[in-house]
Write a protein that binds this DNA or RNA. Structure first.
Lengths: 135, 135
DNA sequence: CTTGTTGTCAACCATCCGGTTAAATAAGGG
DNA sequence: CCCTTATTTAACCGGATGGTTGACAACAAG
């Protein structure tokens, strides 16, 4: 009970980003999009480059929070940041989503092409496959 | 100022699936894929229905861990589970990825179509857009 | 040089996440 | 019945995540 509180005394979040952390690029992209705020930010950026303050305005959320979201998106390669006087405008990184799109494309046949017939087919060969493997 | 935090304590992970937790379906799907193990499980399932034990075998990981991953994938609607004697085989849910594919499709033009020309274009209109908005 | 605006950094906090081990459940087969 | 096999549940642990507040850096303009 008490040890829970003591355990992490001098390691704060920004500090311990260094020790661990080797996320592959694809995971980083998926993780970045697994948050509605960040998806909304991306959507907003399709309308054009935008300052942090303007991005933060529609979200009931502090500025640092938005700043963190932007950092996540940037690390994932989905946006890039500029520097214009005291503004750090964010813009969409056009190729950012390509990796995911390619990954998804690999699975396209499972929903897209005549999937009702395919679904039957899948269940059939699946039955056949692992009946032999287990025992 | 912001009191939208319910903040309950003393709830362990399986138990507190009930109190809070209102993840939208799209976030759940992206989050589910933001883990290489789960993506590998999906890949494996394209080869056919598979038992938990067989799924766990290539990953140096305990059985409960795999079971949890499967639960995440199931909640995200990416797989479904069967019941065959004492086995609970998992199979790919063909329509599971469709939502994400549609979301991504919405951004397709940002990387796909003659993007080098488009990139220029983007930066241009972005500059123009928010010069007027701020100040 | 001071002041206001914009944004980040640092520390903190509660919850979530991905793993563990140990125990419980489910089903089949002597 | 008991035993074995397959899987889930429970409790726990440490790091990651998403938010907060407060301090500070950078720049523009009086």
């Amino acid at each position: 009970m008490v040890d829970n509180k003591i355990r992490q005394l001098h390691l704060t979040d920004q500090f311990n980003t260094k020790p661990v952390m080797q996320t592959d690029p694809l995971s980083a992209k998926f993780a970045a999009l697994a948050d509605p705020t960040r998806r909304a930010i991306l959507a907003r950026l399709t309308e054009g480059e935008c300052s942090v303050g303007d991005l933060a305005e529609p979200f009931d959320m502090s500025l640092p929070a938005v700043s963190k979201h932007l950092k996540v998106l940037e690390k994932a390669g989905l946006i890039s940041r500029g520097k214009e006087a005291q503004w750090r405008p964010a813009r969409l990184e056009p190729m950012g989503l390509k990796g995911m799109a390619e990954w998804l494309e690999h699975y396209r046949r499972y929903w897209d092409q005549s999937f009702d017939r395919l679904e039957d087919y899948l269940r059939k060969i699946q039955k056949g496959n692992d009946d032999g493997e287990r025992s």
